[in-house]
């Protein structure tokens, strides 16, 4: 199994220039900010809403891929939005669940993620998905490239090891995140 920031680093070579990323609050946003091309939509709060935000972005940017990177705590808090996203199935929306079965950011308290059979759950949404349990690095690289290359709405659920890099906080105020992101979109559309 890889650590969250290793998976996020591994994403770099699979991303295309116009791809849009939405990252869930806590460590994941921080890692996305430091490791991946900027600017993206880094959520600092709104726990539970990364998929909803990604859905709004995917519907309004049909020619661009939108990748939502979410922790299991965020995924579970907004579980309903995975059904909403599956209902609309925007072909450009991709969801990467980094599952450490913990609220790692707040001190590693357990989530209830371990009770879910993700393959069955995702299968019930009638979507394309991959459930990679305890996958090797090679397998993860392969899964990430499939996820980003897929032509349909897809979800990749990855079990990850806890652990983080010591990174500074996101330097941009949220208003600056919006400004920079909107400027980038305006340029590329």
């Amino acid at each position: 199994m890889m650590k969250g920031f290793e998976v996020i680093s591994a994403l770099k070579k699979h991303l295309r220039k116009d791809d849009i990323i939405v990252s869930s609050n806590g460590n994941i946003s921080r890692e996305a900010y430091h490791v991946l091309p900027r600017p993206q939509v880094y959520l600092r709060g709104s726990m539970g809403l990364p998929i909803a935000v990604g859905l709004g972005l995917a519907l309004t940017n049909p020619k661009k891929n939108v990748l939502v990177i979410t922790g299991d705590g965020n995924f579970l808090m907004g579980l309903g939005s995975s059904t909403t996203a599956a209902y609309y199935k925007p072909r450009n929306l991709k969801i990467l669940i980094l599952d450490n079965m913990k609220y790692y950011t707040t001190g590693g308290q357990k989530t209830v993620s371990s009770v879910i059979n993700y393959a069955k759950f995702l299968d019930s949404l009638n979507i394309e998905y991959t459930d990679s349990k305890r996958a090797s690095q090679d397998q993860i690289e392969h899964d990430l490239s499939e996820l980003l290359g897929s032509e349909t709405f897809s979800v990749l659920h990855l079990h990850i090891n806890e652990g983080k890099k010591d990174l500074d906080n996101i330097a941009w105020h949220p208003e600056e995140i919006t400004d920079r992101f909107c400027t980038r979109l305006a340029k590329s559309s």
Binding site: L49, A52, G56, L57, L59, C182
Partner: peptide, 26 residues
């Protein structure tokens, strides 16, 4: 106008936020 059904009100705000990040309005 495109209608998007939501499961919760905060989800609707999330969707509207993604729409607003793209310069559109909900």
């Amino acid at each position: 106008i495109k209608h998007i059904y939501s499961t919760r009100e905060d989800e609707a705000i999330g969707i509207a936020s993604g729409i607003a990040f793209s310069g559109k309005k909900a």
